[in-house]
Design a protein around this nucleic acid. Structure first.
Lengths: 342, 342
DNA sequence: GTATTATATTTACGCGCGTAAATACTGGAT
DNA sequence: ATCCAGTATTTACGCGCGTAAATATAATAC
């Protein structure tokens, strides 16, 4: 039963709960720091008179806020949306107040966000950098000022930690699987990948092919930006126009590119998949949320969404609490997800 | 050339720019409110000594902040990610400081977000409610306290305005097109749609069929939550198991459902599309970012993303500036996007 | 040159809370 | 009853800025 009388500030709330303001303040800072009997009195009052401390007044004086910034390069990419959701939830569970930002693929916007993030006085930041186009200097400055954990895309030696996937292993795993089950794959990627992970994946492919004694073949699609599906589709059409892929098996650098390739194949009337009538196999990497729903469903390498986000938040929590600053790097292996496209 | 000496507060910044603090404060509040010569002095100082007013101190005393909250029901849905991105940018352009929130499909989280949004003292909020499962009472209370523009999904008479699509028209347009070009469609939707728009779409379908003298047939897929693709896929499989769809043309309530249906068709070995070998046509609604890349590419109704977000922000800006409170409702028509699935 | 505005400065207070130090209280043990 | 450690209270200051009122100054007009 909430009383109608509105509580203006902590002073008033303290008086209605029969306590002093500093005590109440202590409670809101850390509920465990007051005696159990005091705690219940405050919590009863909280149910009766709805009151919330003014966040602006709180953060003005606290040296360490409970704010956490989450910055991803492109939120319209379901992969980042999904991992952001995951990370956000874990931050809340860890007692932080996360705020989500997207650079929308724009390096200058990324820097702007870092700027406004600074004035948030965040306890820490979880950041997936844009990658290739990120302005390293600015990010470095930021990491020096604010405890920052990088994820997904690494910038060597920056921040408290990096948490991501072992992208080399991703491609090796997939390449090996493809070689084992059919014609050795060619590798399909963007000419100018927006992300250093792409280089690791290419290298993984090359390594695997070398190891298995096959001739690697890398095909590049032109195009810039974040419209990966379109780049994949156009690129594949180009390839078909000029004689087709050098192998009947195409390992794409990521799922979104693969989705574009699937579309191109459909438009060319080329059957994709494992059944006898199909003439081409296509595989992706990432386990994009829609990979299971392509036609045919996309064989891919699953990122450890949960593990990555969990570990990243853990790293940040630890660093914030201990104040340590030694750089750590953690890579998770991917798992093969066999579906019908390859 | 940025001086190394760090500016702590507005007092210091005012002194290095040779002005008084109230004048500088006025500038940051509204750059146009000071004399041009003063403005340039401040801006020169800004380039020299990087300083940003403390946001917490600013917002503590301002009755009207420049904060805007953007709340969507499910950010991992690319449709909402895309519209959020659009809205966010327009808010920035309009001079606001937007912050993005997602209810992640959870009504209680939606209410929690509204709660924490209150303490942000936002100038206004742009909100796409969860829909059916939204707790109307709570939202109503919020709309009474904070200038709120609803978009995408309407809650009658709530907020300053509603901006969305004419969902009835969407289905009518598509149904008419499908009747004109082939067998009249059946309508495929979720049993318990999470969103009132679904009801409008069903009604539009029914109206169109009635008008054209065809027998309407509505098929419902079981399932709850936001995994629309999976619900569509499972639902379609169920239908195939029990004798198949009552028409060779399937109009889906939304694109994500249609993507699931396409997957089910693929899994059943049923060809979809316009070419002679195909036995089924499938159409969606929304023009989901990936609709163009399904196999076959999905025929759908395009939402006016740009127009909706632009109008929503415009409504909010106007309301914030004028303080008016008369409810307004604006619906945009959809456009038919013909691709190969129907 | 003076009168008239428009703009800047001075001064002073308040916002809601964090925080620190000194003091007073509480419950439980002896 | 006495002592003690753990908590709560009192008091007081500060954070960085918004804002208002009175005053001083600069820009513009005549």
């Amino acid at each position: 039963m909430i009383k109608t009388s509105k509580i203006k500030n902590m002073e008033e709330f303290a008086s209605v709960s029969g306590l002093s303001r500093p005590t109440v303040s202590k409670y809101f800072n850390d509920a465990e720091s007051v005696r159990a009997s005091t705690r219940t009195r405050i919590e009863q009052a909280l149910e009766e008179y709805d009151y919330r401390p003014n966040i602006y007044a709180i953060n003005q004086n606290r040296k360490l806020t409970k704010n956490v910034g989450i910055l991803v390069p492109y939120l319209s990419d379901p992969f980042f949306a999904e991992i952001a959701r995951n990370v956000e939830q874990r931050c809340i569970d860890a007692g932080f107040r996360p705020t989500l930002y997207s650079a929308h693929g724009d390096p200058s916007l990324e820097v702007e966000i870092l700027d406004s993030l600074r004035s948030f006085k965040p306890a820490g930041v979880l950041m997936a950098p844009l990658g290739r186009s990120s302005i390293r200097g600015e990010i470095e400055k930021f990491c020096d000022e604010v405890p920052t954990v990088l994820f997904d895309s690494n910038i060597p030696d920056l921040g408290l930690a990096f948490v991501g996937s072992n992208n080399t292993q991703f491609s090796m795993l997939m390449a090996e699987y493809l070689c084992r089950t059919g014609e050795p794959p060619c590798f399909f990627e963007m000419q100018t990948p927006s992300n250093p992970n792409a280089n690791k994946r290419r290298q993984g492919y090359l390594d695997a092919m070398l190891k298995l004694g096959h001739q690697p073949k890398v095909i590049k699609a032109e195009g810039d930006g974040w419209a990966f599906e379109e780049i994949g589709r156009r690129g594949a059409h180009e390839v078909f126009k000029s004689g087709g892929f050098p192998s009947k098996t195409i390992l794409c650098s990521n799922d979104r590119l693969a989705i574009g390739v699937l579309t191109a194949c459909w438009e060319e009337g080329i059957r994709v998949g494992l059944d006898p009538e199909a003439s081409i196999r296509v595989a992706g990497q990432d386990d994009h949320p829609l990979a299971r729903y392509t036609c045919p469903p996309l064989t891919t390498i699953a990122q450890e969404y949960e593990a990555i986000s969990s570990y990243a938040v853990e790293m940040l929590t630890k660093a914030v609490e201990s104040g340590e600053k030694d750089h750590e790097s953690k890579l998770f292996e991917g798992k093969l997800v066999m579906r019908d496209s390859a």
